[in-house]
Simulated assay, not measured.
Amino acid sequence: MPERSVLIVDDETAIRDMLRMALEIADFNVLESDNIQDAYTRILDNKPDIVLLDWMLPGGSGIELLRRLKREESTQELPVIMLTAKTAEDNVIQGLDVGADDYITKPFAPRELIARIRALLRRATPGQDQGRLEVNGLVLDGESRRIFVGDDPVDMGPTEFNLLQFFMSHPERAYTRGQLLDHVWGANVYVEERTVDVHIRRLRKALQTDMADYSGLIQTVRGTGYRFSSRGL
Results as ranks from 00 to 15, higher is better:
Met1Asp: 07
Met1Val: 13
Pro2Gly: 04
Arg4Met: 10
Leu7Asp: 15
Ile8Trp: 05
Asp10Ser: 06
Glu12Ile: 13
Thr13Arg: 10
Arg16Phe: 01
Ala26Cys: 10
Phe28Tyr: 10
Val30His: 07
Asn35Trp: 15
Asn35Val: 04
Ile36Trp: 06
Ile36Gly: 06
Ile36Thr: 10
Ala39Phe: 00
Tyr40Asp: 14
Thr41Ser: 08
Thr41Tyr: 10
Arg42Asn: 03
Ile43Val: 03
Ile43Glu: 07
Leu44Ala: 05
Asp45Pro: 08
Lys47Phe: 08
Pro48Glu: 02
Ile50Tyr: 02
Leu52Phe: 09
Leu52Asp: 00
Leu53Arg: 09
Leu57His: 15
Pro58Thr: 10
Gly59Thr: 04
Glu64Ala: 11
Leu65Asp: 01
Arg67Ile: 05
Arg68Trp: 08
Arg71Gly: 14
Glu72Arg: 14
Glu73His: 15
Thr75Trp: 00
Glu77Met: 05
Glu77Tyr: 14
Val80Trp: 05
Ile81Phe: 00
Met82Arg: 08
Leu83Gly: 07
Ala85Ser: 05
Lys86Asp: 02
Ala88Pro: 01
Asp90Gln: 01
Val92Gln: 10
Ile93Ala: 08
Leu96Lys: 00
Gly99Phe: 06
Gly99Pro: 07
Asp102Met: 14
Thr105Pro: 04
Pro107Tyr: 09
Phe108Glu: 06
Phe108Thr: 07
Ala109Ser: 15
Pro110Ser: 11
Arg111Lys: 12
Ile117Trp: 09
Ala119Thr: 04
Leu120Trp: 11
Arg122Pro: 11
Arg123Val: 15
Ala124Leu: 08
Pro126Ser: 03
Gly127Cys: 04
Asp129Met: 02
Gln130Arg: 15
Gln130Leu: 06
Gln130Ser: 04
Gly131His: 01
Arg132Tyr: 11
Leu133Pro: 02
Val135Phe: 13
Val135Lys: 15
Gly137Val: 14
Val139Thr: 12
Val139His: 14
Arg145Ile: 04
Val149Gln: 10
Val149Ser: 14
Asp151Thr: 13
Pro153Tyr: 07
Val154Glu: 08
Val154Ser: 08
Asp155Ala: 05
Met156Cys: 06
Asn162Gly: 15
Gln165Val: 05
Gln165Pro: 10
Ser169Glu: 12
His170Arg: 11
Pro171Met: 13
Ala174Phe: 12
Thr176Ile: 14
Thr176Lys: 11
Gln179Glu: 11
Leu180Ala: 13
His183Cys: 10
Val184Ser: 03
Gly186Phe: 01
Gly186Gln: 09
Val189Gly: 02
Tyr190Val: 13
Val191Gly: 04
Val191Ile: 13
His199Ser: 11
Ile200Met: 05
Leu203Ala: 11
Arg204Glu: 00
Lys205Cys: 10
Gln208Asp: 12
Met211Thr: 13
Met211Tyr: 14
Leu217Tyr: 12
Ile218Thr: 02
Ile218Ser: 01
Thr224Arg: 08
Thr224Val: 14
Gly225His: 04
Tyr226Ile: 00
Tyr226Asp: 03
Tyr226Leu: 00
Arg227His: 03
